[in-house]
Amino acid sequence: MQEFDNIIELTDFEGCAGKINVSIFKTGARSWVPYFVYLPPNWSPNETYPLVLFLHGQGGDEGTFNKYVQAEQLNEWITNGDIEPLVIAGIRGDNDRDNVQWFAEENESLLVKEQGGEFIQFCQNSFHAGDHGKQISIEGHSRGAAGAIHYYLKYPGLFSSIVGMGYVSDYTLEDNFFLGRKNLEALKRESTWLKLEIGTEDSFVRNKNRRACFEMHQFLKENSIEHSFEILHGVEHGFDTYWNYYSDEEMLNGLAHLKFHERSRKRNCR
């Protein structure tokens, strides 16, 4: 654990309500894994909460979300009734931040119940989040979007909803198309809510002709798999530009995402 000496292992979360905290937990798949968690105001171990998983991009880690999203912003949305209380959490995808692959076997064993789901179980036990029906959603950015789409296609219906921001990982397309064809009927039957977003100023698209988001949209459309695809004017590749984008309805995109996940959960509860 020497590598993580600057990260404190939290065991008591009662003082963490309304904050974004960074900590570490022990796993069988990857030994010690750093993570972040946002707990809503008035969080209580006697209540249960929906869970949104955040998958960071290449070069990111457990601090990426907190770098661009303020707990006070989330607290205000919950206090004002814009969204229901929820828990947002995510792990560091790899200690080598340039080689992070969310679809690696070790990460699947942390994030997928069928593979053990060590981080999911940790969130359920520690934060009382994501343990009732389809109460788990995924937000992914860049390589995190590639991971989110991988989980959407490989495990139809496992997650309540998926948002993929800045999916430019063209090297994942062949495998994702294979998973989509293999699970086509299940994907149609489960109809998990999926939202894909790409910015008009994304440097990977403009300068390197990365087409993953567009090709995935076309694949889903041709195979009649329900999803939404949005091109965001002026948005660059960074996660912050996606989160802080204002829609035509003058709503911050981060809030729109959380509302999207909430609508999907409520639909699943009908």
Rank of each mutant, 00 (worst) to 15 (best):
49 Y>A: 08
13 F>I: 11
18 G>I: 02
186 A>F: 12
118 E>V: 10
164 G>C: 13
218 Q>W: 12
95 N>L: 05
32 W>S: 10
132 H>I: 15
61 D>R: 09
117 G>R: 01
48 T>G: 14
237 H>Y: 03
104 A>C: 06
6 N>V: 10
241 T>I: 05
198 I>Y: 09
247 S>P: 08
171 Y>E: 00
61 D>S: 14
39 L>W: 02
84 E>F: 04
153 L>I: 12
160 S>R: 09
15 G>A: 04
98 D>T: 06
160 S>M: 01
47 E>F: 03
77 W>F: 04
220 L>Y: 11
63 G>W: 09
225 I>C: 13
174 E>T: 10
166 G>Y: 11
242 Y>F: 15
81 G>V: 08
28 G>P: 05
89 A>V: 03
260 F>W: 09
32 W>R: 01
186 A>T: 13
259 K>R: 07
110 L>R: 13
53 L>R: 11
51 L>N: 06
11 T>C: 08
11 T>A: 10
163 V>E: 10
99 N>R: 14
249 E>P: 11
10 L>D: 01
7 I>S: 14
230 E>L: 09
243 W>D: 15
179 L>F: 06
2 Q>A: 06
53 L>E: 06
42 N>W: 02
249 E>T: 04
83 I>D: 03
111 L>W: 02
212 A>N: 08
3 E>A: 13
98 D>F: 12
24 I>G: 00
60 G>A: 07
97 R>A: 14
136 I>F: 02
220 L>Q: 06
42 N>A: 12
52 V>E: 02
173 L>F: 15
232 L>E: 10
70 Q>P: 04
43 W>Y: 03
161 S>W: 02
95 N>G: 12
113 K>W: 08
121 Q>L: 12
250 E>H: 15
87 V>G: 11
5 D>A: 13
134 K>I: 01
250 E>L: 05
193 W>Q: 06
73 Q>Y: 12
189 R>E: 15
26 K>F: 01
60 G>L: 07
63 G>M: 09
96 D>G: 02
256 A>L: 13
30 R>H: 06
177 F>Y: 05
29 A>D: 04
5 D>Q: 09
32 W>V: 09
117 G>Q: 10
190 E>D: 15
160 S>Y: 01
141 H>R: 08
25 F>G: 03
186 A>M: 14
202 D>C: 13
50 P>E: 10
87 V>W: 07
180 G>Q: 13
252 L>I: 12
148 A>G: 05
45 P>T: 15
263 R>V: 03
86 L>Q: 13
22 V>Y: 07
261 H>T: 10
142 S>I: 01
40 P>H: 09
164 G>M: 12
231 I>L: 07
205 V>D: 03
50 P>Y: 04
61 D>L: 10
23 S>G: 00
221 K>T: 15
25 F>W: 02
138 I>V: 09
267 R>M: 00
18 G>A: 10
14 E>Y: 03
243 W>F: 15
269 C>R: 15
3 E>G: 05
59 G>Q: 10
251 M>E: 09
12 D>C: 06
257 H>L: 11
44 S>M: 13
246 Y>C: 11
164 G>L: 03
246 Y>R: 03
104 A>S: 15
